[in-house]
Design a protein around this nucleic acid. Structure first.
Length: 109
DNA sequence: CTTATGACTTTCA
DNA sequence: CTGAAAGCCATAA
């Protein structure tokens, strides 16, 4: 039975789930937390493999590309991601998230 | 085992 | 800033 998902998938899901509201993390950041600094791509794979159920449990929209850039730009999911982030109070700068303000471990003034 | 794909990142021109 | 190329990770076929 396929009840066992690769630890990677589960780990990514867990990490992303811990991202506080109003903050965003990059794929590389999540990968680093997983212990794979270069696994940003793998993180993207994991998020892409999320089921509809996971979309409700995991704040996937809080994961963006390096520099706060939206990797989903041009895709329907990207529009939704921007809408969700904006709803959480995240400010967007020219289509990019202000990591200086909403970074994962950035102390806000 | 090799090849191809991808919600990535970094470097070079 | 834009565009192209290489690198790295995990999965599916």
């Amino acid at each position: 039975m396929s009840a066992e998902r690769s630890g990677f998938f589960e780990r990514v899901r867990e990490i992303v789930r811990t991202i506080p509201r109003g903050r965003v993390a990059t794929y590389g950041q999540v990968a680093a937390l997983l212990g794979v600094p270069r696994g940003a791509r793998a993180v993207g794979w994991a998020l892409r493999a999320l089921d509809a159920e996971a979309h409700v449990r995991v704040p996937w929209h809080r994961v963006v590309g390096a520099g706060g850039r939206i990797s989903l730009g041009g895709r329907p999911a990207g529009v939704e991601q921007l809408a969700r982030l904006r709803r959480e109070g995240v400010r967007l700068r020219d289509g990019r998230v202000d990591l200086a303000r909403h970074g994962l471990f950035v102390s806000r003034s």
